[in-house]
Write a protein that binds this DNA or RNA. Structure first.
Length: 379
DNA sequence: ATGTCC
């Protein structure tokens, strides 16, 4: 224990093995968040990277105040995993690619009407339910590459003979609207915990968590229907949210921004779209503020990706990965920003967690076909 | 990240 955990001070730490590179500016942002009023501890995950003012891939524990800006705009973003009935040996990549290629970006209104619960039928943001969105969001068919812990694997409801579907998305425009409105009134100062504005933010935040979870469910439903398949959800874990929590004997607020909770059973830590995803069992621990990494973490800033790669790779080349998987992404900018080269090796991230004693491996999942945005401007 | 800044 304590191995791979680096302390900048008593309140600032990050988790990384010796061979895992973490950008200095992300550590600086971690340092800045530690100075927020009431902040007790901040921990960077192995996928820590710079964000807009605050780092991504980190957990923050404060007492007396909570900070909506630390959760960010995509309130409720997370990972959902489905066990499908697609038989691994019968999977036809060409056929699956053809079917997902023609899937619209946004759900068909009549389809939505038939699939939405009554309570959301008139929701102002209902139109984005069932849509993946942009950035690092995706839906991906995977096959089980190897199982390290057969007991936990089966207990999770998983079976290696059928494909899995992983969805990564959030609350779309809803979360952004909630944060924008909050910042317009309260700036970045945070909220006194028992105040009326805090109560209101938490209510809106909780709605966004449910909205995002339903979004992942409807994304999976649309894809499975398009693939003539069915599936069972085996897990759904949020990595952008704030919750009441006791740390070090003190009651306070635990914010997670790109940090996966350790108390929700097994979780998926996805690599880039050309890398494996890992199913891991978290080890409950205050060392990492009850959190794990949520992905591989960016290596390159979005803005520099196209310049670094467009001379070497065409969009068509990036639609095929080193692991032999396929990527559907008709947004020419996004396909460079989300190329595997722009991300760290997921092995270095999960190894950092394993060596720190914060998680144990359950299974490694191989990507087959990733759907990102279908884009607006055509092929 | 985003019914996105025209």
């Amino acid at each position: 224990m304590g191995n791979n955990v680096h302390y900048l001070s008593e309140s600032i730490s990050w988790i990384a093995s010796d061979d895992l590179w973490i950008e200095g500016s992300a550590i600086q942002q971690l340092h800045a968040t530690a100075n927020l009023p009431g902040m007790r501890r901040v921990v960077g995950m192995p996928d820590l990277h710079p964000g807009r003012g605050y780092p991504v891939g980190a957990a923050f524990f404060s007492v007396g105040r909570l900070f909506p800006a630390l959760v960010g705009n995509d309130i409720g973003c997370g990972m959902g995993l489905w066990q499908t009935d697609i038989v691994r040996r019968k999977y036809n990549a060409d056929k699956a690619e053809k079917r997902l290629m023609v899937l619209e970006n946004i759900a068909d209104p009549p389809w939505l009407e038939a699939h939405l619960p009554e309570s959301l039928a008139q929701h102002p943001w209902r139109g984005s339910l069932g849509s993946i969105g942009g950035g690092n969001h995706f839906a991906e068919l995977q096959q089980v590459e190897c199982v390290f812990d057969e007991v936990r694997f089966r207990a999770a409801g998983l079976d290696a003979q059928h494909l899995l579907l992983l969805t990564h998305s959030g609350s779309r425009g809803l979360g952004q609207a909630i944060l924008r409105q909050h910042i317009a009134t309260f700036s970045h100062d945070g909220l006194e915990e028992s105040s009326e504005p805090a109560r209101r933010y938490l209510a809106e935040h909780n709605d966004a968590l449910a909205f995002a979870r339903l979004n992942r469910q409807l994304i999976a439903a649309r894809l499975l229907q398009q693939l003539r398949a069915t599936g069972q959800r085996v897990l759904d874990v949020t990595h952008n949210f704030v919750e009441a929590c006791a740390i070090g004997g003190e009651q306070g607020w635990l914010h997670r921004k790109g940090a996966t909770p350790d108390g929700c059973g097994p979780v998926v830590i996805p690599g880039s779209r050309g890398d494996y995803s890992w199913l891991v069992q978290p080890v409950v621990s205050e060392t990492g503020l009850h959190s794990l990494a949520h992905g591989a973490g960016r290596k390159w800033m979005r803005g520099e990706c196209k310049g670094r790669m467009s001379g070497k790779y065409s969009p068509a080349q990036l639609a095929r990965t080193g692991l032999g998987s396929r990527v559907i992404c008709r947004d020419r900018q996004l396909i460079y920003e989300e190329a595997p080269q722009a991300y760290k090796s997921v092995a270095s991230v999960v190894d950092s967690l394993f060596q720190a004693g914060l998680a144990v491996p359950v299974a490694r999942l191989r990507p087959l076909l990733t759907l990102k945005t279908s884009g607006g401007s055509g092929a």
